[in-house]
Design a protein around this nucleic acid. Structure first.
Length: 695
DNA sequence: CATAGCCGCCTTTTT
DNA sequence: GGCGGCTATG
């Protein structure tokens, strides 16, 4: 049943039936609840669950929404997933029309890097001048905007794009012959498929009578096109989001999608949810005071429905160890108090978690680092999954290269190069090349032939459940034996056991279990998917990962220039996104908000003086020293030296001379001089002119 | 073909 | 401070 306590505005969003609707919802406005109720209300009014498609930002959010719909006593069965998962389903179903095979592999960042390096080599370019990372970022950007390699080649008008075009094409060819898609391809191929194939588009649009999209402010162009095509038959689109919480511009998210919604769907109903049921007025006042500094922004009110609550703690610490210790102690005391509540620690970059972990361990505070993909990045897990991928998709070259000689079977670089040449000459895949040369390939006699026979046997048995197959692969591939010989092999084996357990869970829970589906699903696993909100452990996560979550007590640490805003946010748009990120972090807090910075922080081994984040000046809050002494209102922070103070021994970087080490520093205020030893000699520079960056 | 050791660069954020 | 890539050696 739909709850009775919805506000009038929430009710309108829930009850609205036909046609487009935009819900502009501030933080803590019950947006997720509204979407859930809307799904339930649609089903209550006779819409078949299967004809509702809701899109969330993470798998975790999807899972929770599914559970909530069912908890409301409504039948399940609505399609609730992320854009990427939806695309995988569509591409598998219409694989032929999309020009792929349904057992495609999904390439992650490290697979992508391998393919890109190969592409750069194949195009006879030097990877020193064309760094794979940069090329991948450019390709990703193009794919998000649905520009394929042909289109790029046709419009390339400068040195970079003219060099990029053939690399892009080659990169796609490598993925193509591997029957592999990268993350961006999932969206791009789906968008192009829907745009091109009228029958498929209409088929899907009719099967999904209602489309709901959460976090619409963070959709990119490809996702926008997919959404548009999916509702072509009825325009029953409900988008919800908050422009102030757009934090994925760097990944192609286009805030114009939400800003232009009313233009895209004229006559759209617009509902604003401005009441905040989550945070105390103190928290909202500070968050509002911060976000008001963004120039490109529509004014919006945040109205708290709660009592004033505790003051926000804004604390200066001497260094990161002191900060971490204080956070750990505070959390410990909260946990022991009468109303413990849920606490979380948020930071800008993952590297910050280390010192916090140490402090939490020391103080015996149970914690969880919310970084789900870390497990899947472990060497032994990647090896196991590479075997599984080659079994599911023999064309998967990146995975085959990973396991062809793991464990060692005498197939080294020279052999692989020979197999590659053979494959290219005959127009066959690498595995096929290996199969045809199995008897002659490799130094160790029979190693290659044995490998081919083994893989083909696995393939024949791949229909009998992922768990069973994985056990067999682990044992018979020799991986288990190889790990046993390693000094710390016990841990590795335990990790593989955990992977096998997850496969067992998959086998029993999946609707239509298959090896390809299993592999595709775990490829789309996100960091926050590993967050267990029911566990009694303090979550540590990035500000990005905290999107959509809430906690009684939030600790935001390391709020320093260079970290938040991050040093690499150079233009105004990037800076404003950093401010939104801080805003997102602050508005995760219900009652307690603890913001802190450290005067010295260790980067890569060197303790560096820091500058408190300029954002802190925008909060309108008093700052306290770690000993409890007040050091005045914020705004006074602006008076603290913005110019860098260098000290001998410190590592620095100069835009022209590169990295160097400080030998001497003469503090003469504005006219300070610094002497630095660079690779090509020692220089004495005026601090105010030399654009020296602390390293 | 395997491996130890060294250099250089680096991740900011992630589906 | 850590990983990947390169080189020299077995």
């Amino acid at each position: 049943m739909i709850p009775k306590d919805l506000t009038a505005a929430q009710r309108r969003a829930v009850d609205h039936r036909e046609g487009p609707i935009l819900v502009i919802a501030g933080p803590g406005s019950g947006k997720t609840r509204v979407i859930t109720c809307r799904i339930a209300a649609l089903i209550d009014s006779g819409v078949k669950p299967r004809s509702i498609c809701a899109i969330t930002f993470t798998n975790k959010a999807a899972e929770e929404m599914r559970n909530r719909v069912i908890a409301m006593g409504t039948p399940g069965g609505a399609h609730i997933s992320t854009f990427h998962s939806l695309c995988v389903r569509i591409l598998r179903r219409y694989a032929e029309a999309a020009g792929i095979k349904p057992n495609f592999s999904i390439y992650d960042t490290s697979d992508q890097a391998k393919c890109m390096k190969q592409a750069i080599r194949d195009c006879d370019l030097d990877k020193a001048n064309f760094p794979p990372r940069r090329m991948l970022a450019a390709v990703s950007d193009l794919k998000n905007r649905l520009v394929d390699s042909d289109a790029l080649a046709a419009t390339a008008d400068n040195f970079f794009t003219r060099s990029l075009a053939p690399v892009y094409r080659r990169y796609d060819e490598i993925l193509g012959r591997s029957n592999a898609l990268d993350f961006d391809d999932l969206l791009l191929k789906t968008a192009l498929l829907l745009r091109r194939e009228k029958a498929i588009r209409e088929d899907l649009s009719r099967s999904f009578e209602f489309l709901l999209i959460d976090e619409y402010q963070d959709t990119n162009h490809a996702q926008y096109v997919i959404a548009t095509q999916l509702v072509c038959a009825h325009d029953n689109i409900c988008a919800t989001g908050d422009p102030d919480q757009s934090i994925y511009r760097w990944r192609g998210a286009d805030i114009r999608n939400i800003l232009a919604f009313e233009k895209d769907w004229p006559g759209a109903a617009v509902v604003k949810l401005e009441e905040n049921f989550r945070s105390t007025p103190n928290i909202l006042r500070a968050a509002d005071s911060l976000i008001a500094n963004n120039v490109s922004r529509k004014q919006k009110k945040l109205i708290s429905t709660r009592g004033a609550g505790a003051e926000i703690a804004l604390t200066a610490f001497d260094d990161e160890a002191e900060e971490a210790e204080a956070v750990a102690l505070r959390i410990k005391r909260l946990a022991e108090s009468d109303s413990p509540g849920k606490a979380a620690v948020l930071y800008r970059i993952n590297a910050t978690s280390r010192v916090l972990e140490e402090a939490l361990v020391r103080n015996e505070v149970p914690y969880q680092i919310v970084r789900g993909v870390e497990f899947y990045n472990r060497r032994e897990i990647r090896d196991m999954l590479a075997y599984m991928k080659v079994i599911a998709n023999p064309n998967d070259e990146a995975s085959l290269l990973r396991i062809i000689n793991t464990p060692q079977r005498g197939i080294g670089k020279v052999t692989i190069e020979r197999l590659r040449k053979y494959a290219a000459a005959r127009g066959v895949g690498l595995f096929e090349s290996l199969r045809q040369n199995a008897d002659s390939a490799g130094k160790r006699r029979g190693g290659a032939a044995c490998f081919v026979r083994m893989m083909e046997k696995f393939r024949r048995r791949s229909g009998r459940g992922v768990e069973a197959l994985m056990r067999e692969v682990f044992r018979e591939s020799g991986l288990a034996a190889a790990l046993q010989k390693l000094p710390d092999g016990e841990d590795d084996i335990e990790n593989v056991e955990e992977l096998i357990n997850s496969a067992a869970r998959y086998d029993s829970e999946a609707e239509e279990p298959s090896l390809a589906d299993y592999l595709q699903q775990i490829s789309l696993f996100s960091d926050v998917d590993s967050y267990d909100s029911t566990a009694d452990r303090v979550p540590l996560m990035t500000l990005h990962a905290a999107k959509g979550l809430e906690f009684d007590n939030v600790f935001i640490v390391a709020v320093e220039q260079g970290l938040l805003p991050h040093a690499r946010s150079e233009d105004l748009a990037a800076l404003e996104e950093e401010r939104r990120l801080f805003f997102v972090g602050m508005t995760r807090a219900k009652s307690g908000l603890h913001i802190s910075f450290a005067r010295y922080r260790t980067f890569r081994g060197d303790a560096m003086p820091t500058v408190p984040s300029h954002f802190l000046d925008e909060l309108g809050l008093p700052v306290r020293e770690s000993n409890g002494e007040s050091i005045g209102e914020t705004g006074s922070l602006a008076g603290s030296p913005d110019r860098p103070l260098f000290k001998p021994g410190q590592g620095v970087r100069h835009p022209r001379f590169g990295p160097g080490r400080v030998i001497d520093f003469a503090d003469m205020g504005e006219n300070s001089m610094v002497t630095v030893r660079f690779a090509r000699g020692t220089k004495t520079l005026m601090v105010k002119y030399a654009k020296l960056a602390a390293k």
